[in-house]
Nucleic acid binder design. Structure first.
Lengths: 252, 252
DNA sequence: CGCTACTGCGTAGGACTTAAACAGTGAATC
DNA sequence: GATTCACTGTTTAAGTCCTACGCAGTAGCG
């Protein structure tokens, strides 16, 4: 199933994604292709969320049976991993472009955020290790490149990129979850969130939760319109970049 | 099912967790309690991961049947939400303590990281909105309080706390996933990760991925011992705190 | 002593993943 | 040209899972 005929130790489908492995030529012609399956799975995930992605559902999309897919994949896990890379592949990672490291790193983070906004289900798929798929590695490369002329140690460049991506990832997750809760008819969240401040005031005392009440009193949760926490992302990213800038200046 | 007899609009089990709702007195004595169920579910999650948590599995742990649990919970989702709060409740959120805002915020972040290290499955549970459970709110309160005397606007305090928690969350996720991959016998990751640098060199060319190769060449991935990315967390957190500090100084 | 709300649990239905077995196909080999 | 056999898609079935529904039993209240 998870053959390692070539010397990478990767599953066959991963090697296929890298173009390292050739399909055997014997036997009947294949009715499907890995790309087709991945694309269909992404379509399902876009339309119905990651929960809608089942082998049967994806196969139905292709007019095939669930078990057919196992000729191309060893497990559903493999499909999920390939879907992530497929999603990144559908986006154009802009070339490095002009500007200071700060501008370029900022653009990089914004690209990542927009990717998760477009494919929110990517964040629901467990990461099983460091990136090894083509488009993800290309994305990492772009991130590292923004710190090219900064004089940072290689180790620190990686850590800095990890910092930016960590912030962006869980920010996108939070923002996406809340947006989804707003849009869904889930009785709990949809009804609770619009009156969040009110609810908290009802459940907690000002004496025990002074800081929380101060934030609520300042009207922070009284947004007439939910903007996807755009402001908070901007805020966090600027702080992160300030922090990296401080380190760069210290090194120089 | 999801009654809102009291005026919070929350599910009954949530109100129970707040101590707002009383159980009816009629009928036979209850064989279980919500606390018991949550604790059992947490035990299962600790031992077998979030994937091991099924209604049947949790019930078996208690010597009950799967359907019994639905007398206490409206859905599995509710159980999951309660588990998160239960996990935070099992930890002692240290009192604010002494020190500058920076030291206290750092301690706060370290506490959060340690929570996710102890209960990694928490990060696998989808967040359905802003925090509304008791222990989570207490945790948020502690975070906001660290920024007490800084002169930041309330809005900015929340954004800053959100920044720290966002970084910590996805960092814990990444670190936990990779640790799990190292410890698991999952053929893909367990075999691939120790030779990550080697693998990347095999799959990519130096011409196309110069920045990535530079990092690998610097020996960044040659850790003899995997330390859970402790160093990278420290790095990221310091940058974040530097960034917040810069803002505070600018305001003053 | 009913009444009635409440209890736990058995059954069953409709998901899901995937192991195993099957028959058809067609390139490689003799 | 005949044969071999690796490879194909599919069917069947086993083992999960969540939870709607309904039943029989229990205990506080009038």
């Amino acid at each position: 199933m998870s053959g390692d005929d070539t010397e990478t130790g990767l599953p066959a489908s991963f090697e296929l994604a890298w173009g390292v492995r050739d399909r055997p030529t014997k036997g009947p012609k294949r009715g499907l292709s890995l790309e087709q399956i991945i694309e269909a799975a992404i379509d399902v995930a876009n339309a119905e969320g990651i929960g809608g992605v089942s082998m049967g559902r994806v196969a139905r999309e292709l007019g095939a049976s669930a078990m057919s897919l196992y000729r191309y994949l060893a497990s559903k896990e493999e499909l999920l991993a390939l879907m992530i890379d497929g999603a990144f592949g559908q986006l154009d990672v802009a070339e490095d472009g002009e500007g200071s490291w700060r501008v370029r790193l900022e653009r990089w983070a914004e690209f990542e955020l927009s990717a998760y906004r477009r494919f929110p289900w990517v964040l629901r798929i467990p990461v099983t290790g460091a990136p090894i798929m083509p488009h993800q590695l290309r994305f990492l490369e772009r991130g590292l490149r923004t710190l090219g002329g900064t004089g940072l140690a290689e180790q620190d460049k990686l850590s800095a990129v990890l910092l930016v991506t960590s912030f962006t990832r869980s920010f996108a997750m939070l923002s996406g979850d809340i947006t989804a809760a707003f849009e869904s008819d889930d009785p709990t969240t949809a009804r609770v969130m619009p009156r969040y401040g009110e609810l908290i005031r009802k459940l907690t005392t000002r004496a025990e939760y002074p800081a929380l009440h101060a934030v609520i009193d300042a009207g922070t949760f009284d947004d007439e319109e939910f903007d996807g926490l755009e402001h908070d992302f901007r805020f966090g990213l600027e702080r992160v970049l300030d922090g990296i800038e401080a380190l760069i200046n210290r090194r120089a």
